[in-house]
Design a protein around this nucleic acid. Structure first.
Length: 763
RNA sequence: GGGCGCUUAGCUCAGCUGGUUAGAGCGUCUCGUUUACACCGAGAAGGUCUGGGGUUCGAGUCCCUAAGCGCCCACCA
């Protein structure tokens, strides 16, 4: 009793209990399997979850805490139930985000840019940062009580994952799914990189909308600074105003002298918009680029990667966009070409979702994954699901959800998933940043150099080249390889240059469920059965994550996995909601309403925090959290603690009447035995629904925990017992949730006791 | 423009395939208790389930409709 304080103090037990468990090795399924009679109950069923890897940019927030709590509940339940259970921890290198953080830090501390350091030194800095950050995150995950198998820890940018990335890249390249091409992309002039469609967000902005006289027509634009070389006027084919002009060409007085303009009819011009006529700028607008491809118009770059004008702007070359806009208008005004200006034009400005910088659509050379090209379906099983032997990435990824091979909870997200998948465009996977998986493509310039050399010598000697050099002979083919190549296979040159770009961070996280389980090596970790992790645990059972990254991540995992393995990455997707503050606002540092899970864990105990995050929530719905709620669960946990204290005070060696609990189980010195599972549970991917444990202040009523089967039975017999019995069922999750106090056993006891008391009262 | 969700006790939310008097926590009120627990106990009050219409023996639950709130996607020369 002396070591049993009258109220629960998490600080006294949390860390030591976690350490005890970790050292016991029971988080590792290999240990569990190998531990003989103690875990004889381990069955053939496996249960596997890979942790959505937190970004190495920062510390854990409540979203992470929610994820850890829910997954820990599922995992602990299955482990106790006797399933071969693994939960794989890891972190994500979060390419752009991390590079940004380190760049900022570098500037603050040393007033240097990454270019001052150079690629190698800069990456070293990033690695240092990442290492420190990872340590913090690991400590925090332990503090949250997550029963992760640390022996299988992974990082999206470590060596095994790099091998997976390169292997997948090569597979796709060989299947001609990966190609390099000029395309218009969203470009962030600050991050100096492309942005995927879903990395662009929109912000409403009031700006000026200019009506300019362009020859005989008036065109409307919000971006006059891009219009130097506009030569095509697009009008709607049914627009009577311009009908007679279609197909004609004429000279037009414009920003820099005259240009020859042509009028083309296309339905993309909206008659109601502006004047109904527009000129197009293919290099800086998505729709214009599409039109240019359709009709074969010239494409001129006006703005460069840094957001300043190119030589195409004549004397305005080198000018930043905003300044150029005014200048252009000034000039047009001088020429009398400004018809009028709408000062109150409101539109959605596209901005970078990370840094809020306005996005410049630019044409550049990038690597893409073709999502529409048909490839062989890799397994019979998937073939059956898709319904054909060849399919596109898109089709496969949609089919597995449509067919039910992957179940999304809550179901309503199916629709949004399909909508997104059906409208998916080719995925741009190259990023112009340094931190990340370098694209595994090498170029050999030897032949090219030799030829140039030869030519210049000929020129020196005053000779003309007799032979025309064929395009295909200039340079060797790019080398795509898993291992860094020693030399060029076609010419033997050992001076190869690797593609400077890195891969979109989602490329590596798309492989996460299987790259963490040994693919492509299929390491043989488990000698008892001879099964590789991949065979043993893939497809994973559940992917549990926030609905906000359904598209960013979940969809891409499905895409990648169905292609690479011909298998689904997971059977169930369980989506949790966002944690909001009391007023329903998003938690953010700037608003000052963010609750730090670690601080409240210190204050109220981890159990209280976990319960507050988990009880009363439903999948896919946001959760409003207040410190008051956490406090409520602190009280609840304390209640359980005192239940245990009371039971143990009944004397050493005593058994609690009506239960198989003795005092040694109440305050265990050893890890919770995985052989004693709760018999039912409710929070699960199998049975979604609100977690409805109703902790009461009332002594026992309403707690209904553990295996008080008699209680359940009695309730069932009572009239109108259906509903109540259900509630009792739901309550079974608690033993999984409470991981620290280990009052699980005492809760069992209390229930039995409560039952007895209840019986007495009834009599 | 397309799609999704929410509206149930003062507050935060459960209520699955329609079935007897609609549930929980917090809060409120009354009474009690200080050797398991004041981070306490016993009990009580509190709801025309957003409005309207329909299907049904029966609707919080299904259908239609209106309103308010919220979210996602697309796009805007």
């Amino acid at each position: 009793m002396s070591d049993f304080p009258s109220s629960y103090d998490p600080k006294l037990v949390e860390d030591s209990i976690y350490n005890m468990w970790e050292e016991s090795g029971l988080f590792n399924p290999d240990t569990v399997k190998g531990s003989g009679d103690r875990v004889q109950g381990i069955g053939p069923t496996s249960f596997s979850v890979v942790l959505p890897p937190p970004n190495v940019t920062g510390t854990l927030h409540l979203g992470h805490a929610t994820m850890l709590a829910i997954e820990d509940i599922m995992v602990r339940y299955h482990r106790m139930k006797g399933d071969d259970t693994v939960w794989v921890p890891g972190t994500d290198h979060a390419a752009i985000a991390t590079q940004n953080v380190v760049e900022k830090k570098l500037w603050k501390e040393e007033k240097k840019t990454r270019h001052d350091l150079g690629r190698e030194k800069f990456l070293k800095k990033v690695d240092e940062f990442v290492k420190a950050s990872k340590d913090t995150i690991h400590r925090q995950m332990r503090k949250m009580g997550a029963s992760l198998d640390w022996s299988r820890e992974a990082y999206t940018l470590d060596a095994p994952r790099e091998r997976a990335v390169r292997t997948a890249f090569k597979m796709m390249y060989d299947d001609e799914l990966i190609y390099r091409g000029h395309r218009i992309v969203n470009w962030c002039t600050r991050c100096q990189s492309t942005l995927a469609d879903d990395e662009v967000s929109y912000k409403e902005e009031k700006t000026k909308f200019y009506y300019l006289k362009y020859g005989p027509v008036v065109i409307g634009t919000a971006r006059p600074e891009t219009k130097f070389l506009d030569k095509v006027i697009i009008v709607h084919p049914k627009d009577k105003r311009y009908e007679s002009m279609v197909g004609t060409s004429f000279d037009v007085e414009w920003i820099d002298g005259t240009v020859k303009a042509t009028v083309v009819a296309d339905e993309s011009a909206e008659m109601e918009m502006g004047s109904g006529a527009m000129t197009i700028t293919p290099a800086h607008s998505f729709t214009d680029f599409a039109l240019a491809q359709k009709y074969g118009f010239e494409i001129h770059q006006i703005i460069n990667e840094k957001g300043v004008l190119t030589d195409a702007a004549g004397d305005m070359a080198g000018m930043p966009v905003a300044q150029a806009r005014e200048k252009v208008i000034e000039r047009l005004q001088a020429k009398g070409l400004v018809d009028h200006i709408d000062e109150n034009y409101v539109h959605n400005l596209s901005v970078c979702y990370r840094c809020d910088t306005p996005v410049e659509p630019l044409v550049s050379q990038q690597w893409f994954i073709n999502v529409n090209k048909n490839v062989e379906v890799r397994s019979r099983k998937l073939e059956k699901i898709v319904g054909k032997k060849q399919a596109s990435l898109k089709e496969m990824a949609a089919a597995v959800v449509r067919n039910g091979a992957i179940k999304i909870i809550p179901k309503r997200f199916d629709k949004t998933y399909f909508h997104w998948m059906d409208n998916l465009r080719d995925w741009c996977i190259s990023r112009q940043i340094w931190f990340g998986h370098r694209i595994p493509v090498w170029y050999c310039h030897a032949k090219e150099a030799r030829i140039q050399n030869l030519e210049s010598r000929r020129k020196q000697k005053g000779l003309n080249s007799k032979f025309k050099i064929l395009d295909s002979e200039i340079g060797c083919k790019p080398i795509v390889s898993i291992d860094t190549p020693d030399g060029c296979p076609s010419c033997g040159n050992s001076q190869l240059e690797q593609d400077p770009d890195t891969l979109d961070t989602w490329f590596s996280s798309g492989l996460w469920t299987f790259s963490t389980l040994g693919w492509p090596q299929s390491v043989n970790r488990e000698q008892a059965t001879g099964n590789s992790d991949l065979k043993r645990f893939h497809p994973t059972s559940v992917l549990e994550t926030g609905y906000d990254i359904l598209f960013f991540w979940v969809a891409r995992m499905i895409l990648m996995t169905t292609y690479v393995l011909g298998e689904v990455p997971f059977e169930t997707v369980y989506l949790h909601g966002l944690v909001r503050d009391e007023q329903g606002r998003k938690m953010s540092k700037s608003l000052g309403n963010a609750i730090d899970p670690l601080i409240v864990s210190e204050k109220y105990g981890t159990d209280a925090v976990r319960l507050a995050l988990v009880v009363g929530t439903t999948p896919g719905n946001d959760l409003k959290l207040s410190e008051k709620k956490i406090e409520g669960y602190r009280n609840f946990v304390n209640k359980l603690w005192n239940v245990a204290r009371y039971v143990s005070s009944q004397g050493p060696g005593s058994r609690v009447q009506g239960s198989d609990i003795d005092d040694s189980t109440l305050y265990p010195r050893r890890p919770l035995d995985p052989l004693s599972p709760p018999e039912r549970y409710s929070i699960s991917h199998e049975r979604p629904g609100r977690i409805s444990v109703e902790p009461g202040r009332r002594n026992l009523k309403g707690i209904y925990l553990g295996r008080s089967r008699r209680l359940v039975r009695r309730r069932l017999k009572a009239p109108s017992a259906k509903r109540k019995a259900k509630r009792i069922d739901n309550a079974y999750l608690i033993p999984n949730t409470l991981y620290h106090t280990q009052t699980v056993a005492s809760v069992y006891a209390v229930c039995d006791r409560g039952d007895l008391q209840q019986d007495k009262r009834d009599k």
